[in-house]
Amino acid sequence: MNCKKARVLMSAAVDSELALKEEQDFLAHLKQCKECHEEFEDAKKTKMIIKERIVQFKAPQSLVDAIMQLTSLTAIEHEDTLLFE
C-alpha cells in the first residue's frame, strides 16, 4: 500500500470501518511509513478531543415536557378528526 491509498483509508481506520484485509494492509503500511503513522495518531487524537471536549447540553425541561405532551395531544387530535369527520 502506498501513502495515497493509506490516506483514502485513514478516516475509516480511525473509526474502525475498514474490512479486515484493508485494516491489515493499512497497519502494515503504518509500520513502514512514519508520516502516515503520525497522521493516523493525530486523526485519532482529534476524534478523541471532539468526543470528549464538546459539551453536550441537556434539553431544557420545557422541551422535555412539550415532547412528552406532544404524543398525547396528537392522539387526541387524531381521535377528534376520526370522530367528527
Binding site: 483509508l9 475509516a12 480511525v14 473509526d15 470501518e17 482529534t46
Partner: peptide, 16 residues
C-alpha cells in the same frame, strides 16, 4: 463521507 472526515479532521487539527 470518508474523505470529508479525513479532510475535516485535518482542518480541525490545524485549528486546534
Amino acid at each position: 463521507v470518508r474523505s470529508r472526515l479525513y479532510r475535516g479532521r485535518k482542518l480541525l487539527r490545524g485549528q486546534l
